[in-house]
């Protein structure tokens, strides 16, 4: 049974809402974009290079990794905002990659995005009412004007802007950063989605309002049964709000498992280093960062074997040849904890 077939069977038994299998998104790039070490004229940039994960209803998965690791490309590939090279993306049992564009559109109501920067994602000339109304008009939903107004008010209330009437006629510049992000979330909710893909939803916001937005997402999935994929570079945020964390490195998931387990008992040397490098709130907690040398290599020249081996503090000779699979670690761990390292 192929991976795709296997995923179809799983989806049919009603488990994951989103099942991504062996997703690859490669780009052909010019030599200049490929950096100095590229040889030929055109090279392959492996932004996403074999990623598999599941998200269930009511679950939040955090995709964590450093810039350039491919986490945003995963989300774009799921939504086909960029076309994946291979693999399958099963949403409620439907393979999105096989759908013609015309059939993809109605499905988009069910998968919505929350963008990173609410200072850029909202049209400054629109009023809140118009911003939240636009997706309804695009999808030809919401019935009469009065009915639409009701739907808009509900979405704003759900996003925590209450009383919603107060916000309808405002422009984005009259709102704080937190309120803007809530408007952006209302814009996604108005279509009644089942899956939210949130790309760094709080990184542009002030510390004092971040928790409010994250708690809102938390409520939506717990009470609204939404599935959420949250991209973040911040492990602390992921540990607090996600059920599961998938750590990405150079286009691959190198470790995946229950959020607390990944953070408190990381199995992959990359995750261990990341966890140690996160500054702690308590000044007395002076555990030193296990600093990796260098920086993530260019995804044009992915190292052989394990792609982490050149920076890995525990790599052995075999790591140069064996490309490790994501599998349960040898030492017993929590169920569903998987790691791509031959040494763990």
């Amino acid at each position: 049974m192929s991976l795709a077939e296997q995923a179809v069977t799983e989806a049919a038994t009603g488990t994951p809402l989103l099942a991504v299998r062996d997703l690859k998104t490669h780009y052909r790039v010019r030599r200049s974009a490929a950096g100095q070490d590229a040889g030929g004229r055109k090279r392959l940039l492996r932004a996403v290079d074999g990623v598999s994960f599941d998200v269930r209803k009511g679950e939040m998965l955090a995709l964590v990794g450093e810039s350039g690791c491919g986490k945003t490309t995963v989300v774009q590939s799921v939504l086909r905002l960029t076309e994946p090279t291979s693999g399958s993306v099963l949403f409620d049992g439907i393979d999105l990659r096989q759908l013609p564009a015309r059939r993809m559109r109605p499905l988009r109501q069910r998968l919505q995005v929350i963008e990173q920067d609410p200072y850029e994602s909202l049209d400054p000339r629109f009023r809140v009412r118009q911003i939240v109304e636009e997706p309804l008009l695009v999808h030809g939903l919401g019935g009469s004007r009065r009915e639409r107004r009701e739907v808009i008010l509900q979405a704003l209330e759900r996003a925590g802007l209450s009383p919603a009437e107060q916000y309808l006629e405002r422009h984005p510049h009259e709102l704080s950063g937190g309120q803007r992000q809530r408007v952006a979330i209302a814009t996604s909710l108005v279509l009644g989605p089942e899956l939210l893909l949130a790309d760094e939803p709080v990184s542009m916001l002030d510390v004092s309002v971040r928790a409010g937005i994250l708690s809102l997402l938390d409520t939506l999935r717990r009470e609204g049964d939404l599935a959420i994929v949250m991209i973040t570079h911040d492990l602390s945020t992921a540990a607090h709000f996600a059920d599961r964390i998938a750590v990405m490195y150079l286009g691959r998931i190198v470790e995946e498992g229950p959020a607390r387990d990944v953070v408190e008992n990381p199995r992959h040397p990359y995750t261990r280093a990341l966890v140690s490098a996160v500054p702690k709130r308590d000044p007395r907690d002076t555990t030193r960062a296990e600093i990796l040398s260098g920086e993530t290599p260019n995804p044009v020249s992915v190292p052989s074997g394990c792609r982490f081996h050149p920076r890995c503090p525990i790599a052995v000779a075999q790591c140069r040849d064996i490309d490790p699979e994501l599998r349960p670690p040898a030492e017993p761990a929590a169920p569903d904890h998987r790691v791509a390292c031959i040494l763990s």
Partner: peptide, 10 residues
């Protein structure tokens, strides 16, 4: 402000 800041272990 400290209470609004998530910490990895707490």
């Amino acid at each position: 402000l400290f209470a609004a800041t998530p910490d990895l272990y707490q």
